[in-house]
């Protein structure tokens, strides 16, 4: 399967949006190479603000821009922009429901070399608890383009998770990105694998492994994690009697928890697979650190069958 850089696609699309709409402005905290907001700095410098290494200030400045009618897109690594600026996002952005887009790059384990301080497994959990927040977790490069477009077109606070590495191209031009609803990536009736981000690709590979064992897995892509429409989630599960959630995030508070909560009134056997209440560490390769946390197609296939 072909692969594309999710962050490059995001940066390209952001520049295209800025070219179309002069009210969209982009902020970054000395990481625009990593976030790819650099594409806006290069392509339309008058829409770009370097905010230096000061994420908290960046978020409240973005809120000020929004109060005065602009559509700011504030970028940094997920761990800093969501973590360091959490209370600014809560007070300055979400409480007044301002039109600020927060983009967290190098999500999950994707900054494999830098280690624990740079690996964000908590961002979805802390963004999800904030009223008014919409959370996007695109599966590939193409979906990252749709995510930033949808976010900019939607009034109110949005958070988008972006991976640092090249990811398999799993979505098609017509794969829908509907807020609150998962999309069906592959049909099956034995077990439903609910995934988001890079884990969609691994779950599709796990489905092939399971097919070899006579198990038909359905794969659902959660491009948005919040809000989640419980009826849409239930419908998307089809006839599957059991569910596995897979995420490059802590199993606490992330996609697995969101699905579990959405189905709380109609429970089904559900297993969550993801990062188990721990921090990351440095590794020489992305695949090595993913494997350490069991984020491989083989392991997802095993988890799908585990009782």
């Amino acid at each position: 399967m072909s692969k594309s850089s999710q962050r490059n696609a995001y940066g390209e699309e952001l520049l295209a949006i800025c070219r179309e709409n002069n009210d969209v402005v982009v902020l970054d905290a000395d990481l625009c190479g990593g976030t790819q907001a650099i594409q806006v700095e290069k392509g339309k410098p008058e829409s770009f603000y370097e905010m230096g290494i000061g994420e908290q200030n960046m978020i409240s400045v973005a809120a000020g821009l929004a109060l005065a009618g602009k559509i700011p897109v504030a970028n940094s690594f997920a761990v800093f922009v969501g973590g360091r600026s959490f209370e600014q996002i809560r007070q300055s952005v979400c409480l007044p429901e301002l039109n600020v887009k927060v983009v967290g790059a190098s999500c999950g384990l994707s900054d494999f070399a830098d280690g624990a301080t740079h690996q964000a497994f908590e961002d979805v959990a802390i963004m999800r608890v904030l009223p008014h927040m919409t959370i996007f977790s695109p599966a590939d490069a193409r979906e990252a383009r749709k995510a930033i477009r949808t976010a900019v077109g939607r009034r109110g606070p949005c958070y988008i998770r972006i991976n640092r590495n090249e990811l398999p191209d799993v979505t098609a031009p017509d794969t829908p990105l509907e807020i609150g609803k998962p999309s069906l990536m592959a049909d099956g009736g034995d077990v439903a694998i609910c995934a988001s981000g890079h884990m969609v690709a691994l779950s599709l590979a796990a489905r092939d492994i399971l097919a070899g064992q006579g198990v038909r897995a359905r794969v659902l892509n959660f491009a948005t994690i919040k809000p989640l429409d419980p009826a849409a989630v239930r419908a998307a599960l089809g006839p599957c009697p059991r569910i596995l959630t897979v995420e490059e995030h802590s199993v606490i508070g992330g996609l697995g928890a969101a699905v579990l909560e959405a189905l709380a009134d109609h429970p089904l056997p559900l297993r969550r697979h993801g990062i188990r209440d721990t921090y990351g560490e440095s590794a020489e390769k992305y695949e090595r650190i993913l494997a350490k946390h069991g984020l491989t197609a083989e392991r997802i296939a095993e988890e799908a069958l585990a009782k």
């Binding site: 624990a116 301080t117 020489e284």
Partner: peptide, 25 residues
């Protein structure tokens, strides 16, 4: 340095002898 399971992480951690504080953010 920066290999899986290595003593020397990408950013300092107090589990490494001589390192007094975790930093990186």
């Amino acid at each position: 340095t920066k290999t899986l399971g290595g003593l020397l992480q990408g950013h300092p951690e107090i589990s490494t002898p001589g390192i007094e504080a975790n930093t990186g953010s």
